[in-house]
Design a protein around this nucleic acid. Sequence first.
DNA 1: CAACGGACCTGCCTGC
DNA 2: TGCAGGCAGGTCCGTT
Length: 271
Amino acid sequence: MPELPEVETTRRGIEPYIEGRVIKALRVRERRLRWPVAEQLEAVLPGQTVYVVGRRGKYLCLTLDNGTLILHLGMSGSLRLVEADTPAGTHDHLDLAFEDGHCLRLRDPRRFGALLWTEKDPCQHPRLAALGPEPLSGDFDGDYLYRRSRGRRVAVKAFLMDSRVVAGIGNIYANEALFLAGIRPGIAAGRLSNPRCQRLAKAVKEVLVAAIEQGGTTLRDFQREDGQPGYFQQELKVYGRKGEPCPSCGGPIRSRVIAQRASYYCPACQA
DNA sequence: CAACGGACCTGCCTGC
DNA sequence: TGCAGGCAGGTCCGTT
């Protein structure tokens, strides 16, 4: 569900409600997420203030007094703001309750998400330390892509989705960026010319910015923290559109599996 | 080191 | 209607 635009949409949605607020309690209904939620957390968090609601790739980072809460939504996670007395549903695993009565609730049916805690520099946390640059930052550009891709034989789509190369690009936006750039998802990353790397970096930024502006993509059950859907699915050019006409040339969109993930492209527009 | 497959989970859709 | 099978937005880990 959540790639970078969905996580950023969530971040922007919760920020005004939790920044500067004091945590009253963490309620854990299901500890078994991707990694078990640390037992110490219920004791450690109360009384701490949320100073910064940040994001690194697909990770949300809440800066508190004594450390940082690191939250990942996995494949199916979503955050909602609810009143403290709202009854919890089946997959509502965690509540972060605040002294003002608001409550940040994590729902995650597949339990691939995670809640982690570090008292050190969060960038040094094992989950964050190896992440590549933020795709919307100046550190990510065509020259960087060109440099990193030399000698790489992996499919360019798998390369884009490698979080060590660039953070936050998942299956939807990898497909979309490659379509925008006119590049076939299956070609070896190392064979991209420099101009094509420039175009690809630009396409990645464009598609992410547009998706964030639309509040992310809603497929199946993704909802924003306020319960509204994201509208970017209407803008998807190729993802999930096997057999439909290419918005550029009208030919049928093709689908094939690359690196175990469904991939969509226009064989006429992408070379 | 690079690349691949399996693993972790549940829900939903399809087709028999 | 019921059920098996396949598939899903992520990413870690072990094996080649």
